[in-house]
Nucleic acid binder design. Structure first.
Length: 817
RNA sequence: GCUCGGGUGGCGAAAUGGUAGACGCAGGGGACUUAAAAUCCCCAGGGGGCAACCCCGUCCCGGUUCGAGUCCGGGCCCGAGUACCA
């Protein structure tokens, strides 16, 4: 028996998924759209487990926004794709013994099913996967553009190496210095790696973050990027070596003010001057220390809070301020890839230097004295911080000045003497993009004995990743691709002699650093992105994603966009006009992951409650930008809400006379809710938007008011959250075209104002009552009413010293008894 | 350690410096039912009082204000990011 008036989520959702697909409802005309709105969300990595609740939360939140924008009259392009290359897929494939080329399509099919089922407004015509040759052809092309501009280069870089698995490991695969798979202690190996010169762009990447005409981003994300770029302001200072034969040692410091307290120098073990500085008696110890530092894995070397180690080189240098001799040491706490790879150690005012000096018995000099201290007060710990109210001591003519002043003064003093200069440093380092792995786009370079490295001509792209069965990494230190002679040997594009292909593949982050450029042009095979379409749709109007990508993905995308902009291919240099980070959905206080065994799969909930209820529930849980712990406890609430809306739709009727039938109170509530819901959705405060809709529904039911216009607009406002449901209601209300091409309900500001207002009355700051008065009542009217209220009057016994009137809200008496 | 969030009923959460707890879940009481489910109505921060009402209450301590969950200073706890960056 069928019940046509019953809300049956499953049937409705299936019906509308099919209809949207058949009628291409979600595919905007990319060439002719007049009010384009590019609504982007971070494309997923298609794992074998499928979408989890956290993914669904993120996608739903972005989808709600896209649907809302569409109803505001924009042509919304909401594409989706799959970030399917990379070490995750490869490792999983190795583990289960199935080739990634077989595994990934299977996972993508499952993801596609889930994404369709959740009711995302995805333009499936433009779907892409980074593993398709038609996509990575252009990833390789992007590499070549950087290469052409001299922004891609090769140098030796340290990688983690597992001597047991005989393979390169990513930093995430090294747990406490050991291989995550076999537990063997990981070593450092120097391999030739490809790098992108992102450091050239550090300044622009930083400056644009503060330019509201280019970027409107979540504060948390901006902050994370700034920290990552790590701009610091200081000076390079050259210490002359005591031995006239050797040249000076240049250090970088952010604290030139403490120069008088610099009692020794420390060089990174890899520093090129170490050889020249090492004297005979110390050579053996220095060599041993350097060897030991070189053997450490990349992760442990950089992890802080370690016992300090180091050795003396035997040389000394001259402190340019004091003229005194200072010893030159090497230690692994100084990193070659930051600053100049050498520091002046100021143990009195730097914790690390203090620990080092204490351990090795080096002198500690105080140069800043805080309140109640003087030049002779002993230091039992480093006194860091430049603006703690301290004054300079033991610093000759600078004594008595503030460290802040002194920093500038010493810098210019050094500059005038030619022994130093003001500099700016960034913590950012160049992006290592090569991977000695299989599952990625081959880097399009051919090595020729005569011509050197030659880029693959763009006409020859893509360099197809060959389908090989033995894709496991081996102990050679090079990619498995090197074992395939038929692929490896290739004629040199320049001279035609036999050359060899680059066997490294590129980093997954390169795949995702430009995908948003590809979406609008994804069906075009002869260009990476069409100029006209790019001009129409980009930069991205709204990008929503997780803050775990606040740094790498978002920074790399900005960098690639800037490079293409500089090459004259894009007319914007920031790809994402607006970025909002959604919150993280955790389970039992921890991020969902298979290893923790706390992954919540959405399918069971959709089976039981329907996608619309589940979407609404996820958005109602709490603030979208905060996330939270997933529980399914309250899911019946949103379902009951949809049931109530459904009932109103079934009962919807035409009034004889609109104003006569609907009481003023309902009308005001209705307009208030329309105003509020639009505002809340615009700011991604979905939980309160839904709460407002629930209030409206409750009022309509209490007043037994199923007026047709009103119910229709209510349905429209639920549409972003419960799209299938809303379509069905919309159709039942007699509409033919999709609800998402209808216009978002507008409100009348005049009708959001109530006839009467409730004014709180306080006496000496404590609320003692309230009065209900006409909307525009003056202070005098309210005061008279308040004084007549016995609940208030009894507190007004003394002298009324003052009355504070907050129009329309509150009246406060200040009484002295 | 540093940077950024956050601490409000039994629970998820609301609250331009102006009646704290909207909305929802769970709970209690009632209606309908042979019964249950579903649905509907009512109650619901804690304490006191027959009641009208009163007192206390947003992590802790202090401050600004007629008035502080909200602003300022100090502290505690939780979460995220980052990590020897000189």
């Amino acid at each position: 028996m069928s019940e046509p008036d019953k809300y049956l989520p499953e049937a409705i959702e299936t019906k509308w998924c099919e209809r949207w697909a058949a009628e291409r409802t979600n595919e905007p005309d990319l060439d002719r759209a007049e009010r384009p709105f590019y609504n982007l969300m971070m494309f997923p990595y298609p794992s074998a487990e499928g979408l989890h609740v956290g993914n669904l939360f993120a996608f739903t939140g972005a989808d709600v926004y896209g649907r809302f924008k569409r109803m505001q009259g924009y042509q919304v392009f909401e594409p989706i794709g799959f970030d399917a290359f990379g070490i995750h897929s490869e490792n999983f494939a190795i583990k289960v013994g199935v080739h990634p080329a077989e595994l990934i399509p299977r996972n993508i099919a499952n993801f596609t099913r889930q994404l369709t089922r959740m009711g995302g407004m995805f333009s499936w015509r433009n779907v892409l996967s980074t593993t398709e040759p038609s996509y990575y052809k252009w990833t390789q092309w992007v590499f070549l553009q950087l290469y052409k501009q001299g922004l891609a280069y090769k140098k030796h870089g340290a990688v983690n190496w597992c001597p047991s698995c005989k393979t390169v490991l990513s930093n995430e695969q090294v747990i406490a210095g050991a291989c995550e798979r076999c537990g063997t202690v990981v070593e450092q190996r120097a391999l030739e790696q490809w790098y992108f010169r992102i450091t050239d762009y550090a300044e622009r990447l930083l400056a644009n973050l503060d330019d509201p005409t280019k970027m409107d981003w979540s504060d948390t994300t901006v902050m994370a990027q700034k920290n990552w770029l790590g701009r610091s302001h200081g000076a390079e200072i050259t210490f002359r070596a005591s031995d006239a034969a050797s040249s000076g040692i240049t250090v970088y410091t952010t604290r030139p003010d403490t120069l008088f307290g610099a009692t020794f120098l420390v060089l990174a073990p890899e520093h090129p001057l170490v050889d020249a500085l090492t004297t005979g008696a110390h050579r053996a110890a220095v060599e041993a220390y350097r060897a030991q530092a070189a053997a450490q894995d990349v992760v442990t070397r950089k992890v802080g809070d370690k016992e300090k180690t180091g050795v003396f080189t035997g040389s000394t240098a001259l402190n340019p301020a004091t003229g005194g001799q200072v010893q030159v040491w090497i230690a692994d706490y100084v990193l070659m890839d930051y600053g100049t790879g050498a520091i002046m150690a100021v143990p009195g005012h730097d914790e690390r230097d203090f620990a080092f000096a204490t351990k090795f018995g080096l002198p500690i000099v105080r140069v800043i004295a805080g309140p109640g201290e003087d030049a002779g007060t002993p230091l039992d710990a480093a006194h860091t911080g430049i603006d703690g109210g301290g004054r300079m001591v033991n610093s000759r003519e600078f004594d008595g000045r503030t460290p802040m002043d002194t920093k500038a003064a010493i810098t210019s003093w050094l500059t005038s003497r030619g022994t130093g200069k003001e500099t700016v440093q960034y913590r950012l380092y160049d992006w290592c993009i090569s991977r000695q792995r299989y599952w990625g786009p081959p880097i399009p370079i051919i090595y020729c004995d005569d011509c050197g490295p030659v880029p693959v001509p763009e006409a020859d792209l893509p360099v197809v990743l060959p389908a090989i069965d033995d894709f496991r990494p081996d102990d050679s230190g090079v990619s498995p691709l090197a074992r395939h002679a038929e692929w490896y040997f290739v004629p040199c594009p320049t001279c035609g002699k036999q050359g060899r292909r680059e066997t490294d593949v590129s980093d997954t982050f390169l795949d995702s650093a430009w995908y948003f450029l590809r979406y609008p042009s994804s069906e075009l095979t002869d260009r990476p992105f069409d100029l006209a379409r790019t001009k129409k749709w980009l930069p991205v109007a709204s990008y929503i994603g997780g803050n775990e990508h606040a740094v790498l993905h978002l920074l790399y995308s900005r960098f690639i966009t800037m490079v293409l902009h500089d090459a004259g291919m894009l007319d914007f240099e920031e790809p994402f006009r607006k970025f909002r980070a959604h919150g993280l959905i955790v389970k039992d206080g921890a991020k969902m992951s298979k290893s923790r065994g706390n992954v919540v799969v959405p399918d069971q909930y959709i089976d039981k409650w329907g996608a619309d209820t589940f979407r609404t529930y996820l958005m109602f849980l709490g603030p979208f930008q905060e996330g939270g712990d997933f529980r399914d406890a309250g899911i019946s609430g949103p379902r009951r809400f949809l049931d109530k809306v459904w009932e109103l739709v079934i009962q919807a009727r035409h009034p004889d006379s609109f104003d006569a039938e609907i009481r003023r109170e309902v009308l005001v509530k209705w307009h208030q809710v329309k105003q509020r819901v639009a505002e809340e959705i615009e700011h991604l405060r979905y939980n309160t938007a839904i709460a407002a809709l629930m209030e409206l529904v409750n009022v309509l039911r209490d007043q037994n008011c199923a007026e047709r216009t009103l119910v229709t607009e209510l349905v429209q406002m639920t549409a972003p959250f419960a799209p299938h449901f809303a379509e069905e209601c919309w159709e039942r209300l007699g509409h033919k075209r999709t609800i998402f091409d209808s216009t978002w309900p507008s409100f009348d500001p005049a009708l959001t104002i109530e006839d009467t207002i409730t004014v709180a009355v306080q006496v000496n700051g404590k609320t003692r009552g309230s009065v209900v008065v006409p909307r525009d009542s003056t202070e005098a009217v309210v005061r008279t009413a308040a004084e007549a209220d016995p609940a208030v009057a009894k507190y007004l016994a003394g002298e009324i010293k003052k009355v504070i009137w907050v129009p329309g809200r509150m009246l406060s008496f200040v009484v002295v008894s």
